[in-house]
Amino acid sequence: MSTSTVPNFPNVPNTVMPRPHDIGGQASTASTAERAPQAPVRLAHGLLAIRNADGSVTLQPTQPLTLQAEELEALVNDLAGLRASMDPPYPLDCPPLCALEPCYSPRHWVACDPLTGKILIFLRHHLFGWLGIVQTPEASLEMLKSVAVEMKNLEWSEDDPKRALH
């Protein structure tokens, strides 16, 4: 993956942060409630990210950007890491299906990592490219059970036209 932890966005446990490009920053000891202005972080292709006192982020291009697909992908990854560090955090609950951009029948890849004993799941999203998930075998089994329940619901709805799909 092309991102790494950056000390400019403190107090964000277990998140992937945008990688710094030429501009460094010192780790802040300020709590999330009392944010002090922080040094800008240079994202991919010279875009500066400045964390504001109110928790928002100002993005400032240092020059006009003309990007190829690979360069835009690097910038999207940096922006995703930046979003992961912001408040409010991503909601734990899934939003309504109408609010999502679904990916129908994505390519996928699944493997077991023998070094960690974890299950690796990669899905190719049509907007965001390959998305990776690493989870325990138990969590993978729970996911499989959830899919099986929805498959059963689908079977029931095909048998009985009055049953709605979930």
Rank of each mutant, 00 (worst) to 15 (best):
H125A: 11
P96G: 11
A148P: 03
T136D: 13
P106E: 02
I121P: 01
P161K: 11
S105C: 07
R124L: 08
C94K: 09
V147Y: 00
R83L: 04
H108K: 06
T136N: 14
V147I: 08
C112S: 15
D87F: 04
H126S: 13
L123N: 03
P102Q: 10
V134W: 00
V134P: 00
P91V: 03
E150M: 09
P102I: 10
N153Y: 03
E138G: 06
G129T: 08
I133L: 06
R124Q: 12
Y90N: 10
L100H: 04
G117H: 10
A148F: 04
P89G: 05
L127Q: 15
P88T: 08
C94A: 11
V147Q: 04
P95S: 14
F128I: 08
G81I: 01
L115Q: 15
P96S: 13
L79M: 05
A99Y: 09
Y104F: 07
A84S: 14
M143A: 10
G129N: 13
F128R: 15
E155T: 14
A148W: 01
S140L: 01
P95T: 08
L97Y: 09
Y90V: 06
N153V: 04
P161D: 07
E138S: 09
L79I: 03
L141R: 13
A84W: 02
D93P: 01
I121F: 05
L120Q: 13
G129V: 03
L92S: 13
P102K: 10
L82D: 00
R124P: 00
P96N: 12
P89Y: 04
P102G: 11
G132R: 09
L131R: 06
P102L: 11
P89H: 07
K118T: 07
L131D: 00
G117C: 06
R124A: 11
W156P: 01
R107F: 02
E142S: 13
I119V: 15
L115S: 15
V149M: 04
D159Y: 08
V149K: 11
G129R: 09
V110Q: 03
